[in-house]
């Protein structure tokens, strides 16, 4: 562990939670995708996100154990034994998977954010190794999800309408990404937001989609104030660990 880190553990957990919760949602597609090749593709992304979550939870566990002078924290205690109010992921990633259009749109909006964030974190003393490895994966996530946004936005009139609906459903959750929590660096987030907006605008134009204006921003996830969806998700995800405390799997 890099002791010069000035990143709070809460920040690392925030990054990890975003990855895990989105992976958990996307994993619901496995075996149910619209076509076999795309079932495999979304599952690849799911696996990447779980891999990133694991690296981040392991790092957070190391720091916590050093702070507390014990070995109690592991990737699994952090993922499986924290309650809903302790999870700090943004609301966007916990929303139900919706239809394929909603899933790829969310992935695209989130991956563009993650790409810019990891690029920034590539220079961070503590996170550079994880960020650099993840950046390669996320580059592909952006490319894949962007292609789907274009295909569906500019596909048939039915797919266009479904994408417009998806934009309406998700847009109010995008602002939270840039609403700095105490554990985040506000000026950096602001810079990322500017580039993010530009890139999204370009893609939306090509996809013949319009960005909603004057939308109220839903937030709270970073403070553990979630939608009602997260509780059910965690209940399902954590059930074996909760039911059989201290068992090894």
């Amino acid at each position: 562990m890099n002791t010069q880190s000035n990143l709070p553990v809460s920040y690392i957990l925030y990054l990890a939670d975003n990855n895990l919760i989105l992976a958990q949602r996307n994993s619901e597609w496995c075996g149910h995708g619209p076509i076999l090749e795309q079932d495999i593709a979304i599952t690849n992304i799911t696996l990447d996100l779980i891999g990133q979550a694991r690296m981040l939870y392991q790092l957070a566990a190391d720091i916590l154990n050093q702070q507390n002078g014990n070995q109690e924290a592991t990737e699994d205690t952090l993922a499986y034994l924290r309650d809903e109010r302790a999870f700090s992921n943004v609301l966007m990633v916990e929303l139900p998977k919706g239809n394929w259009g909603f899933t790829v749109l969310r992935q695209y909006l989130f991956s563009e954010f993650q790409y810019l964030l990891y690029k920034h974190l590539s220079a961070d003393a503590t996170l550079s190794a994880i960020a650099i490895k993840s950046l390669k994966e996320v580059t592909y996530h952006v490319q894949w999800s962007r292609e789907w946004v274009l295909r569906l936005g500019d596909g048939t009139s039915e797919s266009h309408q479904k994408m417009m609906d998806a934009v309406q459903d998700i847009w109010m959750y995008t602002g939270e990404l840039f609403d700095a929590a105490p554990f985040e660096d506000a000026p950096v987030l602001q810079q990322i937001q500017t580039v993010w907006q530009q890139r999204i605008a370009e893609t939306f134009e090509e996809a013949t989609l319009t960005i909603p204006e004057n939308v109220f921003i839903q937030k709270g996830g970073k403070n553990g104030i979630h939608t009602e969806h997260l509780g059910y998700m965690l209940a399902e995800m954590q059930y074996l660990q909760r039911m059989y405390p201290n068992a090894t799997w």
Binding site: L36, I40, T43, I50, D76, A247
Partner: peptide
């Protein structure tokens, strides 16, 4: 059982396995 796998490692292994089966199908 993907959403209920009892550890992150088991979850990753299970997802990768089910994905392999999709590949076999292809």
């Amino acid at each position: 059982w993907i959403t209920r796998a009892p550890s992150l490692k088991r979850k990753a292994i299970l997802i990768a396995k089910v994905q392999d089966e999709a590949g076999h199908g292809l």
